[in-house]
């Protein structure tokens, strides 16, 4: 049989053997059997020298082409088998739950506070702070709420026990601040106008805990003092911030009210789709007003030169509205199933 006549069957045999190799060692064995030093294909190549001289170029060309074809087939099969070898023993079930790392969540009150703070910072407010144990001067007197003022009755206050016995009789008793407004006084006494601050923080009222009350809760206070500040400024800024915090579909309503440390004093109601869903026209959300000239006099600002406005509202209330939470106590129980939801 001529050499060339043997070539095609041998090639076909080699290709079949390569395709049949089940794994990489088998493939290497197959390679040796055909292309190795003692391999069948190598043996065929060795016969090339026995051919007549004029037949050699054609036969050499044919053998080289066949060899190249075999090598290509080998490479393809090798990468197929390498891939197969790399696969895990058991195939991965991509529907299995993955291995999760614990990621903590910020408390919802923190998240809401941060959002409110961010909204105010956008319009130039800086965050300020003050003590939670206050005295009567900063919490009431300086805010134009003297001892026998009826407004002082509404805020039932926790007093700090004094070592010397009779706790309530001493002048300027220490108490837990009933509102963040006390920080207004501290900031105005410590820095000259203009002032543009917000004060998030804990406040305390002597209410028994129920679905809407906790003796501890959070407020945020804002104060802006400058020349030529008007009610228009107050309305515009508060509207901008509440739209940012509660969504652009929110509508605000300002109506006259009374706080001893602002004049005029206003209450702010808001409404949006959520409020309508609750079956109400308006929900009260905040109190505000123009800083009372008496307060300015108390901190040594000239009310003829400076005017300003202040507002305050409860953070729990905003968080409850935002997330649909109906019991304020959930915020302070820290059930992890609650915390993980936000």
């Amino acid at each position: 049989m001529s050499l060339l006549a043997q070539l095609d069957p041998l090639k076909a045999e080699a290709l079949a053997a390569l395709a049949a190799a089940a794994d990489l060692p088998a493939l290497e064995q197959t390679k040796g059997a055909f292309l190795g030093g003692d391999g069948k294909f190598t043996a065929l190549m060795k016969q090339l020298g026995t051919l007549p001289k004029e037949e050699r170029p054609a036969a050499g060309k044919a053998i080289n082409a066949a060899k190249s074809e075999l090598e290509t087939a080998l490479a393809v099969r090798r990468s197929e088998l390498e891939l197969k070898a790399a696969l895990p023993k058991e195939p991965t079930d991509w529907t299995l739950p993955g291995r999760r790392r614990a990621v903590g969540k910020l408390h919802p009150l923190t998240q809401v506070t941060d959002d409110i703070v961010r909204a105010f910072r956008k319009v130039g407010f800086a965050v300020a702070d003050g003590p939670e144990i206050e005295d009567e001067y900063h919490c009431f007197d300086a805010l134009n709420t003297p001892a026998d003022h009826p407004a002082r009755d509404a805020q039932d206050t926790f007093y700090v026990a004094q070592d010397s016995g009779s706790p309530l009789s001493t002048k300027n008793s220490q108490l837990l601040r009933t509102h963040t407004s006390s920080v207004q006084i501290r900031v105005m006494k410590s820095q000259p106008p203009p002032i543009r601050i917000i004060v998030p923080g804990r406040v305390y009222r002597r209410d028994n805990a129920d679905a809407t009350h906790n003796p501890t809760f959070h407020q945020i206070e804002g104060l802006y003092v400058d020349k030529h500040v008007t009610v228009s400024d107050l309305k515009g800024t508060v509207e901008a911030v509440f739209k940012d915090v509660l969504g652009s579909d929110v509508k605000l309503r300002f109506r006259p009210h009374y706080f001893s440390y602002t004049e005029p004093s206003l209450e702010i109601d808001f409404t949006n789709a959520l409020v309508k869903k609750l079956g109400k026209d308006w929900l009260e959300i905040a109190g505000c007003g123009m800083v009372h000239p008496q307060v300015f006099e108390n901190v040594g600002y000239d009310p003829e030169v400076w005017t300003g406005w202040a507002f305050g509202f409860g953070i729990e209330r905003i968080a409850m509205l935002r997330y649909g939470i109906t019991d304020i106590r959930l915020f302070y129980e820290n059930d992890v199933r609650f915390l993980r939801q936000f």
Partner: peptide, 19 residues
């Protein structure tokens, strides 16, 4: 009070050490 116009936020930039 509802007839008092609202004006866009303006004025001094706030400063406080706590910020």
């Amino acid at each position: 009070v509802d007839k008092i116009p609202s004006t866009t936020p303006r004025g001094a930039v706030g400063m406080n050490a706590f910020d």
